[in-house]
Simulated scan of single mutants.
Amino acid sequence: MRAARLLSLLLLLQNRGRLTAGELAEELGVSVRTVYRDIDSLSGAGIPVYGDAGHHGGYELLGGYRTRLTGLHAEEAESLFLAGLPGAADDLGLGEVLAAAQLKLTAALPAPLRDRSGRVRERFHLDALGWYREQDSPPALVALAHAVWNQRRIRVRYRRWAEPQEVERELDPYGLVLKAGVWYLVAATDDAVRTYRVSSILRLDVGEDGFERPDGFDLAAHWQDYLHAYDARRLRLQASVRIAPALLSALPDRLDAALVRAVEASAGPPEADGWVTATVPLESVESALPTLLSLGPDIEVLAPEELRRALAATAAAMLDRYRPADTSGRCGAGDLSSSPADSVASRESAASTAKP
Rank of each mutant, 00 (worst) to 15 (best):
H228F: 08
M1H: 13
L126F: 15
P356F: 02
A107K: 05
M318D: 06
D38S: 08
A99K: 11
I243S: 01
L11W: 02
D209L: 15
D191W: 10
S284A: 10
E283A: 13
A140P: 14
D335V: 00
A229M: 06
S200N: 14
E305K: 07
A354Y: 05
A265P: 07
G84L: 09
L42W: 01
G17Y: 11
A83T: 14
V32L: 07
P269W: 03
D335N: 01
G54D: 14
H125S: 14
I39H: 00
E348P: 00
T67E: 04
R5V: 09
T291K: 00
T195P: 01
H222G: 05
T34N: 07
E26F: 03
R116L: 08
D209Y: 09
S343M: 08
E27G: 05
A239C: 03
V206Q: 08
E166F: 12
R5I: 09
R5G: 08
Q165W: 10
D326M: 11
E26H: 06
V32H: 08
E96N: 05
T279Q: 08
T34G: 04
W275R: 06
A354F: 05
G216R: 12
H146D: 14
D342G: 05
V301F: 14
A244R: 04
R153V: 12
D253A: 00
L109W: 11
G329Q: 10
F211D: 14
G130I: 09
Q14C: 01
L80Y: 11
L103G: 08
R121I: 13
L302A: 07
H125E: 15
R33W: 00
P297N: 13
A310S: 14
A188C: 03
A333G: 02
Q224L: 05
L178G: 03
A350F: 04
N150E: 09
A99R: 13
G63A: 05
P245Y: 10
A45G: 00
V49Y: 01
P164Q: 13
S31C: 01
A4D: 14
V142L: 07
G332P: 06
L141M: 08
L289F: 02
Y158G: 07
R119F: 07
A53Q: 15
R323H: 12
S328P: 08
P48C: 01
P86K: 05
L311R: 11
A100M: 02
A325E: 15
L103T: 06
D191A: 15
A101C: 10
P304R: 09
D52G: 11
V263K: 00
T20I: 07
D218S: 15
D191I: 11
K104P: 08
V198N: 02
V156E: 04
L6M: 03
D191R: 15
R119C: 06
I299S: 00
D326R: 15
A229D: 09
A220T: 15
A162G: 12
Y65W: 04
R169C: 10
S338D: 04
V32D: 08
E166D: 14
Q14Y: 00
G181W: 06
A88W: 02
D90R: 11
W183A: 02
S337F: 06
A257G: 02
L185E: 04
S349A: 12
A267C: 04
A272G: 09
D172G: 07
A288P: 05
E271P: 01
G51Q: 15
T20C: 07
A111K: 10
D335T: 01
G329P: 12
G329W: 12
A83L: 13
Q238H: 09
G17M: 13
A145C: 12
T277A: 06
A99C: 04
L82I: 12
S284M: 11
P139L: 11
